[in-house]
Amino acid sequence: MQCPKCGSQSIVKNGHTHSGKQNLKCRDCQRQFVMAPRHQPISQETRELIDRLLAEKISLAGIARSTGVSERWLQYYVNRKLEAVKREVQVKSKKKGKLTIQCDEMWSFVGFKGNKQWIWLAIDVVTKEIVGVYIGKRDETGAHGLWDSLPAVYRQCACSFTDFWSAYQRVFPKKRHQSVGKETGKTSYIERFNNTMRQRISRLVRKTLSFSKKLSNHMVAIWYFIHDYNARLSIE
Rank of each mutant, 00 (worst) to 15 (best):
R27Y: 08
R38M: 10
W73N: 03
V220F: 06
T100K: 07
H144S: 06
P37K: 13
Q40I: 14
R27Q: 04
D51F: 00
T196E: 06
E88D: 10
W73P: 00
K57E: 03
Q22C: 10
Y76V: 11
N79I: 04
S66T: 12
W73S: 04
N115K: 13
T67N: 11
Q44F: 11
D228L: 01
K81G: 02
E83K: 15
L53Y: 15
I101K: 03
T141D: 14
K86M: 05
P41L: 02
P4D: 00
Q44L: 11
E71G: 14
F109D: 02
G142C: 09
Q102Y: 03
Q199N: 12
Q75K: 15
N195C: 06
D148N: 14
E191M: 04
T187K: 02
E83F: 15
V131I: 04
G97T: 09
P4I: 01
K25N: 00
C6H: 04
K128L: 08
N217L: 07
I130H: 14
R27C: 02
K113Y: 01
V91N: 06
Y134F: 15
E48Y: 09
L150M: 10
L233G: 06
W120E: 04
G114I: 06
L99P: 01
E140S: 12
Q169V: 04
L53G: 11
K137E: 13
K116S: 03
K98S: 12
V171L: 15
S19P: 05
L24Y: 12
K86H: 07
W120Q: 07
K86G: 00
V12T: 12
Q169F: 10
K113F: 00
L215A: 11
N195R: 15
K95W: 09
G142I: 14
E56D: 10
S43E: 07
K95I: 06
W147M: 13
K81C: 04
Q2P: 01
I201M: 03
L209D: 06
I135L: 11
G185V: 03
